[in-house]
Design a protein around this nucleic acid. Structure first.
Lengths: 118, 118
DNA sequence: CAGAGTGTGTACTAAGTAGTACATAGTATA
DNA sequence: TATACTATGTACTACTTAGTACACACTCTG
């Protein structure tokens, strides 16, 4: 098991706990709707990352971007997948083409699309 | 169960069988590496679409784009997912922004990226 | 009419997913 | 020192995924 996910979550949660005692395993687990033992196992890498819905809730809890946390868990948000599935050829072509592009090039495309008159 | 996937595969295979007898359930199943009864069930929607690897093999067999066939199966190719997972913020932003864009706008971006000096 | 090839029905399974329930042991506080 | 909250360990389970194995009945061809 790789477990960047678990350690990352643990680190973030412990950090938040410094200033807010409600960030215990128990309370966070309760807030995201899982058993404390399960969250504990996930954080220690003994259980694989939970389902997408729980990860999204967890991201909100620890103030992290949901897509980033999902990525750490080896997943891609289902709403993104749906966008791709609706036009597979076009999005497949686009994504494969941007695979090797540097970050700033990507950012430029993002901005162009945002600002442009599409 | 929705089953556009199964019917689509069946239609394509039957069409090919008109001119080539080797496109029977049995032979295609053998070529893509599953049991004939399983392919039969998949085609009739009694079993969900098979694994990504089998779908890709099937796409080759019936001469369809793998990404399109995967999309019909409700999946997104794992290599595309990996690209997204490596830079989740950027790709999430891009894809969400292009969600509602018309096909020709998407095509323009694809072409720009291909031709541009990125 | 034998044999090959066709599609399909039934039964089974091994591995992975996503957890729950409960017990235990340590720690902080009043 | 009681109590309350903390984290963790062990055991169990229901569901899903991704199929296999094998037998059956039909049809076409030599």
């Amino acid at each position: 098991m790789d477990d960047t996910f678990g350690s990352y979550v643990r680190d973030r949660r412990e950090a938040l706990r410094q200033s807010d005692a409600t960030f215990s395993v128990r309370q966070v687990a309760m807030r995201i709707g899982v058993e404390p033992s399960f969250l504990s196992k996930v954080e220690r890498g003994e259980a694989p990352p939970p389902s997408e819905a729980k990860i999204v809730a967890l991201a909100r809890e620890i103030g992290e971007d949901a897509d980033v946390l999902l990525a750490l868990a080896g997943k891609v948000s289902s709403d993104l997948q749906e966008v791709i599935r609706k036009r597979p050829e076009l999005f497949a072509a686009l994504i494969r083409q941007l695979k090797g592009a540097p970050d700033n090039a990507l950012l430029r495309v993002v901005r162009e699309v945002r600002d442009g008159d599409w």
